[in-house]
Simulated scan of single mutants.
Amino acid sequence: MRTGVYPGTFDPITLGHMDIIRRGAKLVDRLVIGVTTNASKSPMFSLEERLATVRRETAGIPGIEVVAFNSLLMDFAERQGASIIVRGLRAVADFEYEYQMAGMNQQINNRVETVFLMADVALQPIASRLVKEIALYGGAIHKFVSPTVCEDVVARVNALGKLGD
């Protein structure tokens, strides 16, 4: 059985993430969505909330498993029995970062390959960071996330309070 890992913070999970998940799931028998924390990012949602959201959003996709992790990606991939890491690319800036990470990861564990999937052209500009920023300023995010994720984000923004005027 071929296992892949698709890591991310998924704060929140976007239509771009879902595109990569659907397509990545076709490449493997089992795709583990690794939900992690990132010290350089300020999450809007807790790890538990993000896990629940990713599980809800991916429930209809066969072969998906959602797991939290807080370790080196290559150690997590090894524990999952993964032979590939799935990464999505939106722009040249993504490529430069991801290329460097793939090289470092290969040095750590050369038994796991990194596979890059180009984001759908219509979804390329979507980034969780921008979705949160738009929402915090009261903008519409329905074009970037599913209806249920949109509701979750709007509810969180209402609880936190909008920024700006």
Rank of each mutant, 00 (worst) to 15 (best):
I33S: 04
M1G: 13
Q124F: 05
G81Q: 04
S83L: 06
A77T: 12
E49N: 05
R50C: 11
S146C: 00
A77F: 12
I84D: 05
I20C: 10
C150V: 11
Y6E: 01
V54Q: 04
K41I: 01
V54S: 10
F76P: 04
G34F: 12
V66W: 03
I21W: 06
A159N: 06
R2P: 09
T37I: 15
Q80M: 13
A140E: 14
T3C: 03
V28S: 02
A52T: 07
I20S: 07
Y97V: 14
V32S: 02
E113P: 01
D75H: 11
G8R: 01
D165F: 11
I84Q: 07
R50G: 12
H142P: 02
E98H: 12
A102M: 03
I21R: 05
A155H: 09
T58N: 09
D152A: 10
E65I: 05
A155W: 05
G34R: 03
I141F: 04
A122M: 09
E78V: 12
K143Q: 13
G63V: 01
D29N: 15
N158K: 06
A140M: 12
I141T: 07
H142E: 14
A93T: 15
K132Q: 04
Q100F: 08
T3A: 04
I13E: 02
N70D: 14
I84P: 04
T14Y: 15
L117A: 02
R129N: 12
R30W: 10
E96K: 13
G60L: 00
G81K: 00
I126F: 10
T148R: 11
D75T: 11
K41L: 04
R156N: 08
Y99T: 15
E113Q: 09
R30F: 11
M104T: 14
R129S: 14
I61T: 06
N38M: 04
Y97A: 09
